[in-house]
């Protein structure tokens, strides 16, 4: 789906290129043609750098806007690059093998238990959230008729759910799972809370993925005598898998980075819990705990590196899955 957007955009950009040359590209052109006889090769409707420069001299306002727009883009990318660079450069020297030992002690401040807890948390949350989100999406796209009232309600609630701050989820989780259901501070409370939190993400991406499957697939399947259920599971789902997978990977990223929703649900015990009903902290909480204890700033920085690398990899994987397999189904 992401991929499709990208294609559209590049098509749009290409379209504009032929009509009014891109600011960036004519800057390049300008450099190339600096000494030459300028617009010799100008086709109809193609602006060369020189034309553009003349136009900017006439409209200084436009030039300022251009600069502002480029500046904003540069700031955005620069902040990101600076943030990643700063965390990596300051954190990597503090990484040591002792931080990856199996047991957490106050001496090694190992993050291994936290990493394992994070993986457990991701697995349990997804086991709950993926079927729910996927089935909801199937209902919305494949079963509900047009103008169905329920669909509208579900859309609004999913959107609302997506906008609720994580601390409110945390409060709710500790009230419902921790207190009312007597799970206390436990991995299970945390996973259930996170499952609700990522539900809208999975629902929305799955819905988009299912929608992008061409109707002719469904018609073909119905035409061969398959029932609705078989059509969904044998025809529609397999071709929608990449989009769904990309959404699930995004959800994983969100779970890995979540802190506020987990502090008062899964708790901050630094070891690997014996069961899901015991407390354990994920990597993000581990980092917050190290920071707030004030004694382990260097270790917190090293943890930030691991967390950041994890998130970057997850994001790259999501984009890769969407692009790679997206192309395959389109062929």
């Amino acid at each position: 789906m992401d991929n499709k957007e990208k294609k559209k955009s590049s098509a749009a950009n290409a379209g504009r290129n032929t009509e009014s040359a891109e600011p960036m590209s004519y800057m390049n052109q300008m450099a190339e043609e600096n000494g030459g006889g300028a617009c010799a090769a100008a086709a109809i409707n193609v602006l060369t750098g020189k034309d553009k420069m003349r136009s900017y001299r006439k409209h200084p306002g436009s030039f300022i806007l251009l600069l502002l727009v480029i500046l904003a883009a540069v700031i955005t990318v620069a902040v990101l690059v600076f943030l990643i660079g700063y965390i990596l450069i300051n954190g990597i020297p503090h990484l040591s093998l002792s931080m990856f030992e199996w047991e957490y002690t106050t001496e090694n401040v190992s993050m291994m238990p936290a990493i394992i807890n994070t993986i457990t948390m991701v697995a349990v949350s997804l086991v709950i959230a993926v079927p729910l989100g996927l089935f909801s999406a199937i209902y919305l796209v494949e079963y509900a008729g047009r103008g169905n009232k329920l669909v509208k309600v579900i859309r609004v609630t999913a959107e609302t759910l997506a906008g609720i701050p994580s601390i409110v989820f945390g409060l709710f989780g500790s009230l419902m799972f921790g207190v009312s259901l007597h799970f206390g501070y436990s991995m299970l409370s945390g996973a259930l809370t996170l499952a609700i939190m990522v539900l809208p993400t999975i629902l929305r991406t799955s819905e988009e993925a299912l929608k992008s499957v061409s109707d002719s697939y469904r018609e073909g399947s119905f035409g061969l005598g398959a029932g609705r259920l078989r059509t969904v599971f044998r025809i529609v789902l397999p071709s929608a898998i990449p989009g769904i997978l990309a959404g699930i990977i995004l959800a994983i990223g969100r779970i890995c980075g979540e802190t506020a929703a987990l502090i008062y649900t899964s708790g901050t015990v630094a070891g690997i819990p014996d069961s899901l009903l015991d407390s354990g902290r994920t990597l993000a909480i581990h980092m917050y705990a190290l920071y707030s204890e004030g004694l382990y700033m260097e270790e917190a920085n090293a943890t930030a590196v691991v967390l950041l690398v994890m998130v970057i990899l997850i994001n790259a994987l999501s984009a890769f899955v969407a692009r790679r397999f997206g192309n395959k189904t389109e062929d």
Binding site: T76, L80, L250, G257, A284, M287, A304, N315, A319
Partner: peptide
């Protein structure tokens, strides 16, 4: 730009 902005959205708030 596009992946960069997506990545920005994915970085945990604690970081």
């Amino acid at each position: 730009m596009k992946p960069a902005v997506d990545l920005m959205a994915g970085i945990p708030s604690i970081v």
